[in-house]
Design a protein around this nucleic acid. Sequence first.
DNA 1: TTGTAGGCGTTATCAC
DNA 2: GTGATAACGCCTACAA
Lengths: 334, 334
Amino acid sequence: MGEEQQDGAGARRVTLRDVAKLAGVSHQTVSRAINDKGEIDPETRRRVLDAARELRYRPSRFARGLVSSGTTTIGLLVPDVVNPFFPELIAGVIDAARDRGWQVVVSSAQDDVDREPELLRSLSGQVDALIAYLFQPDDVVAAAIGGVPLVLMNRRPRDPAFAGVDIDVETGVRAAVRHLVARGHRRIGMIDCPHAQDPARRAVFLDETAAQGVPVPDGAVVAVAQSMAGGESGLAALYATRPQLTAVLAFNDVVALGAYRAARDLGLTIPADLALIGFDGLSLGELLEPPLTTIYLDKRRMGELAVAQAQKLIAGEPAPLVLQGTELLLRGSV
Amino acid sequence: MGEEQQDGAGARRVTLRDVAKLAGVSHQTVSRAINDKGEIDPETRRRVLDAARELRYRPSRFARGLVSSGTTTIGLLVPDVVNPFFPELIAGVIDAARDRGWQVVVSSAQDDVDREPELLRSLSGQVDALIAYLFQPDDVVAAAIGGVPLVLMNRRPRDPAFAGVDIDVETGVRAAVRHLVARGHRRIGMIDCPHAQDPARRAVFLDETAAQGVPVPDGAVVAVAQSMAGGESGLAALYATRPQLTAVLAFNDVVALGAYRAARDLGLTIPADLALIGFDGLSLGELLEPPLTTIYLDKRRMGELAVAQAQKLIAGEPAPLVLQGTELLLRGSV
DNA sequence: TTGTAGGCGTTATCAC
DNA sequence: GTGATAACGCCTACAA
């Protein structure tokens, strides 16, 4: 085989110099033509561009990044792209990044916590900062990312090197409890999820019910997997031990969806027989009949805040924890 | 100019050589220590690693990519990350990419067609191939990406340089029509969307109804915006001119959701008064009561196929159009 | 085990 | 206007 020019096997990359040779100029002139820089004879320029096209020349992002500073890239790792909680958050990150001229490499743990370390490891080598929604503890995470700036999205970091954006569940949960009490509910249960690193929702729930003088007996709070199936079994469990409950707060909307279905299957009418409140404010809750009342969280904004935190980290500035508030969004299930 | 990078003042990037100096070795030894290569005295290694940590050294991905081949990165541009059609597709792309050790930079046009060219332009400089769901015509796209391999996801490319993954609507749409006819429906309407580059759904719909001897008069097919609001107005328009319709096929599930709501608002019971069929097979259709019957499309697989196409393009192999089939998914709205 | 060249593809600087 | 030449930060030889 004579020339290595073909696209097939031993195809060396086409470089500025190849183009230069074909156009009969120096590689520097080619650079000028490609980047519309400096004064160039229009005729030369055209010739160079033609040669570049003919050779299918494409500049190397690595070489460019090496000499100039390169595009800032952030890595985003979420548990599962398909979980309806995340698309909005991802959109927030992407949009905020774009406003800064940054890129976002998105990665998914495919709902498997054990993949987090490896994914973090491979991501961290390719980005300027990481934003992640993780379940692995901070020390495991720290070992995996080796010094790359990291913004945690679902908990308050213990490692001071990490920045964080966390949910302020207080106002939302208290408002929900108060609203239920105002509606006359005295038997209120909760379907919690254990995986949450901080038991904030449950704690606030218990605190506010107590403040309202509403007792929450044993068996009125259950913990289930963070999924629709979890919600279903959660409601079934609640109903089995505490059938007198008239209202239930779910860990989040996905769990609430399962509870909603289970309640229906039990022959309960919502909200007449059972009031149900979710958490997150997913728009798909509007599809239900009646639509799901929920504690609303601006997920898009959380993503934007995370990018802002990442920016501080990259700049070497301090990035104290940021909280995103929640509020009760009345729809129809209460 | 770019001295604003690290810690305040004139912070140059920390390089292998800086670490080398601090550790009292050559930069080459540092490289060995960092990459666990070759034989290194454990003691030296430790010293180097300590120095690296102290200096917060992080290797430059650009320099690395320049000398080795660098991670393959593909750019993914979708109209809107939040539209429930896309997360599954994105997940398919990300997972397929991960199986190959590739990365995915995700970008969103924020539902604004006019942003496509600029986004393509900036993405194309940073990736080895593009996968995109676009509305701009091929020539505009070609001008924006300048020779970067591109896989189109929602139409058959006219430009032979592009690869494509398209939806085969045939089997699904025909099955839907036949099923409606078998159920006794003789007055079938359709809510179409004009933005679709090829009128495949409508054409097949008309063809199959004709084949079944079911007339589709004027006014029984309307075209609306591809959104829930479009679906609402579409059903209202249909009902205004053709109130005798007993079944409606929607362009997709999101449009069907709007139609579903509008039908309810008109006092129609689904499926007794009106049968409704969507397209895409979004899982959120299951939340409705009754759940939405739909023409199912494996969106995740479409994403995987797109990555496979991208791989061929990158390898310089031919990448003939690939089709992803559809099938009727009976739920409860028929 | 460790250090010394050399080059990866680009852009910037300065002569010509 | 155009062309040498020198970085950019790293890795792969090869030499010590």
